[in-house]
């Protein structure tokens, strides 16, 4: 079937099968392999992408469900000139990843959080991010990075 949607700010028109998940479509048909698949049961958050600004697990969302919607993946976060999004930069600055497999989903979930709540407390971050698992970092540097990114975003809006 024919599927049309907005992907990282550009229109996409592509053939897909009814059984294709969004993660399969992104990774296998659109070669956007930044989206990672891990648990496949909506527990780990590694495959998180933004659909209409909200974080969703692309491993269990049928691709057809994003018809006419706006999808943002990790590949769409930096500026066209390569400038990183403040969350991406904060993740580097604060060593908020090790193996990096959870990182794309983690950063997109963090973006959804900061879009909704520009000044989250530590509790807010922990509560919102609880659906994303990281096996390497013990989470502490991720919380710090998200709060720093919030500061940077606040400064840039002044």
């Amino acid at each position: 079937m024919r599927l049309c949607f907005q992907l990282n700010g550009r229109p996409v028109e592509i053939e897909c099968e009814a059984a294709d998940t969004l993660a399969e479509l992104l990774r296998n048909h659109l070669n956007l392999t930044g989206t990672k698949v891990s648990c496949e049961v909506q527990v780990c958050g590694a495959c998180t992408v933004l659909v209409g600004g909200l974080p969703v697990s692309s491993c269990t969302l049928l691709a057809y469900e994003v018809r006419d919607k706006n999808v943002v993946t990790i590949e769409g976060l930096a500026q066209p000139d390569g400038t990183l999004h403040p969350i991406q930069q904060a993740f580097i600055d604060d060593f908020a990843f090790q193996c990096g497999f959870c990182t794309p989903g983690m950063i997109l979930a963090a973006k959804a959080l900061l879009d909704e709540n520009p000044k989250p407390s530590e509790d807010d971050v922990i509560h919102y991010m609880d659906g994303n698992i990281c096996r390497c970092t013990g989470y502490v540097p991720i919380v710090r990075a998200i709060q720093k990114a919030a500061e940077t975003l606040k400064e840039s809006k002044k």
């Binding site: 990790i74 930096a78 993740f91 580097i92 990182t103």
Partner: peptide, 12 residues
């Protein structure tokens, strides 16, 4: 900073 930083935060 980590050498693999940029690659890992951009999905590359």
């Amino acid at each position: 900073p980590r050498r693999d930083g940029r690659a890992k935060v951009t999905g590359k």
